[in-house]
């Protein structure tokens, strides 16, 4: 990892009619960095990636990828990037090897490099022996790794991943992230969008996106520390809804929200909530089970930054 910025995004704006999908977004990504755009569906993450790939023209602002302007030098940009979308856009009626050969041809990979890269992609995706299967017959995880293989046959310096693990089983997702980390170690810059919190933890740095704006940026640890202002407690109580309503009135409580079967409560620092709160709740006919200080997760950070709008209603499979 070095300090040469591979992607520079400056005041980027994309409007669709009256709707502003991306609003004054700026960030820089260093070579070899894994940078995550984390936000709910429709927050503008994909629009940012699509502008950086040259699929959409920015309404205003500018962006460069490996030194080329995305609006004016889109063709140069495309020679250096790989792009993988959430739909695993491969031809289901072609075999795995035919898909690889097709994309290699489009990227101008030929000769010895072609055989070498295709062999590498087959091995990487774990498709050895199944090269002649129709892509449509492959499982989600295989398809995903094959799509990744197709996207990096030409050894791009930048890799864009738009929701790459949507609908893939947990084991395949972990394998996938191992591959991503390996590419990053080899110097590939990776920009990934996700709405899965656990996936965001894999990133070196993150930008939290909400309604087209960046609300926070930093390493996952930084974001968790700065976003949650106060101490975080987990409280199991019954009834849950009554507990939530009551605890918001308790002294020293900054914010509270439901996480699964428990409450996450932010309390101003320097108090003794573990003794204060159960007493307060008992006065409101709420029985308290477990209560303990926890370290904030990204989800806590996101909730406190965007005003308690949950990011993903369901945890990833």
């Amino acid at each position: 990892m070095n300090d040469v910025p591979s992607i520079v995004v400056d005041q980027l704006v994309k409007r669709f009619g009256a709707f502003t999908a991306v609003n004054q977004v700026s960030f820089e990504i260093r070579s070899g960095e894994i940078f995550g755009l984390l936000g709910p569906n429709g927050s503008g993450k994909s629009t940012i990636i699509r502008m950086l790939c040259g699929l959409l023209t920015p309404s205003s602002g500018s962006a460069t990828v490996v030194g080329f302007d995305v609006a004016r030098q889109a063709e140069d940009v495309r020679r250096h990037i790989g792009y993988m979308s959430q739909k695993f856009s491969l031809y289901n009626d072609l075999t795995a090897i035919e898909n690889l050969q097709f994309f290699a041809g489009l990227y101008g990979v030929k000769g010895r490099a072609l055989d070498e890269r295709i062999a590498w992609a087959i091995k990487m995706s774990g498709l050895a022996g199944s090269e002649q299967l129709l892509t449509g017959e492959l499982s989600g995880g295989w398809k995903q790794r094959l799509a990744l293989g197709c996207a990096v046959l030409h050894r791009p310096r930048v890799l864009f991943l738009d929701e790459p693990t949507a609908g893939v089983d947990p084991l395949s997702r972990r394998q996938f992230w191992e591959l991503i980390h390996q590419m990053s170690r080899e110097g590939v810059t990776i920009l990934v969008t996700t709405h899965y919190m656990d996936e965001a933890e894999y990133c070196n740095r993150l930008a939290l996106i909400d309604e087209g704006r960046i609300v926070e940026m930093g390493t996952p640890t930084e974001i968790k520390q700065t976003a949650v202002k106060g101490d975080l407690l987990l409280i199991e109580c019954s009834p849950l809804g009554g507990g939530l309503a009551a605890i918001k009135q308790a002294p020293g409580v900054i914010d509270a929200s439901v996480f699964g079967a428990a409450l996450h409560v932010v309390v101003s620092a320097g108090r003794d909530p573990v003794t204060e709160l159960p007493a307060f709740l008992a006065g409101h006919d709420v029985r308290v089970g477990r209560i303990e200080p926890i370290s904030p997760s990204l989800e806590d950070a996101f909730v406190s930054l965007t005003g308690s709008r949950a990011l993903s209603s369901e945890p990833p499979q």
Partner: peptide, 14 residues
């Protein structure tokens, strides 16, 4: 519809 057009358009093809 299947998204391959987009995938093709991010390659250097004109």
């Amino acid at each position: 519809e299947i998204g391959t057009l987009e995938q093709i358009m991010v390659t250097p093809i004109r």
